[in-house]
Amino acid sequence: MQVHTRHTPAFGVARISLAPGEAVQAVPDTLLASSFGITEVQQSRGGLRAHGKGQPSVFTAPKEGGWLDLAPAGPGDVYPLEMDGRSGWNVHRQAFLARPATIRVDPGWQPLQALFGGDNGFLEHYSGTGPLVLACAGPVDALKIEAGELITVRPPYLLAYPDAVQCRLRAVDPSGPQSIRTGEGLALDFAGPGTVLVQARKSR
């Protein structure tokens, strides 16, 4: 699977090129166009849900290969996060657009369970190798954190961060409303070294 982007960063489109018989899981509502012969199989109702986007589908290329163009519903960027298999990534639930079979989502991943107190929060964990394609509400910034440095990010602007970066979730105002499902009223403190990916506009 190869990913090429165009119309970035304001109205990004991701071209997913597939080898013969190769499959990709993607959000079906974002399919703009595809080469002829691409087949789609919808996941069962018990499958994982892309936040606010319905169940992902599995698209498979015919024997001659093929391509899909994916365009998020709103304006913003598309970002292929290249995963090398050495580190997993924690990704905002609303950001998922597409992934190959070599990348898996890890429901119930223990560090996120600890971060959110055992509930399902606004992040999900991915591991494996290949390009994890993300839909972003705005252009992407990579914030490099040096050893001993601390930064704070508000959840609606967070895109992803690797396992190696230390993270703490806290209330902005302990007396105010808070939601670990949406990130309302919360802040994330990160400790370096490492890189945190943020988007220049809030998640919708």
Rank of each mutant, 00 (worst) to 15 (best):
L112P: 04
V140H: 06
D106V: 15
L112F: 07
W67Y: 12
G130R: 07
V133E: 00
A95Y: 02
T129Q: 09
Q113T: 14
L134N: 00
G118K: 15
G85P: 01
A71D: 13
S87P: 08
F59N: 05
K63D: 13
D77K: 06
E64Q: 14
P80C: 05
P111Y: 04
P62K: 05
D69A: 14
G74S: 15
A95T: 01
Y79G: 03
H92K: 11
T102M: 08
N90G: 10
R99M: 08
P100Q: 07
P111G: 06
P107R: 06
P62G: 07
A135F: 01
F122A: 03
A73K: 14
A142V: 09
V105Y: 09
D84T: 03
G121R: 00
Q94L: 12
L134V: 03
R99N: 07
F59A: 04
G130C: 02
P72E: 00
A101F: 07
P107M: 05
N120M: 15
L143Q: 12
L123W: 02
Y126L: 08
Y126A: 03
I103S: 03
D77Q: 10
L112M: 09
Y126M: 05
M83L: 07
G138W: 04
P72Y: 02
S57I: 02
E82S: 10
E124D: 11
C136H: 08
D141W: 13
G74K: 14
P62T: 11
R86K: 11
D106K: 14
W89C: 00
P107Y: 03
G118V: 13
K63M: 15
D84C: 03
E64K: 11
L97F: 02
F116P: 07
G130F: 04
P80G: 02
P75S: 14
G138N: 00
G76C: 04
P131I: 04
L134F: 05
Y79F: 11
L134R: 01
S127F: 09
D141M: 12
P100C: 08
A71Y: 13
L132D: 02
S127R: 08
R99S: 05
V140M: 06
D119T: 15
A114F: 13
M83F: 02
G76K: 01
W109L: 14
H92F: 10
L70K: 03
G138K: 01
F116C: 07
F59M: 01
A135N: 03
S87Y: 13
W109F: 15
R93K: 09
P72V: 04
D77H: 08
E82R: 13
D77Y: 01
P72S: 00
G121F: 03
G88S: 11
V105C: 10
A71I: 11
Q113K: 15
V91D: 01
P100D: 06
H125T: 00
V140L: 02
A98Y: 02
R86A: 11
A98V: 03
G108P: 04
D119G: 15
A61I: 01
A137Q: 07
C136M: 09
S57M: 02
G130A: 03
L81K: 02
T60W: 00
R104Q: 14
A73N: 12
P75K: 12
P111S: 07
F59S: 06
G117S: 09
L81D: 05
D119Q: 15
T60C: 07
P111H: 04
L143T: 11
W109G: 10
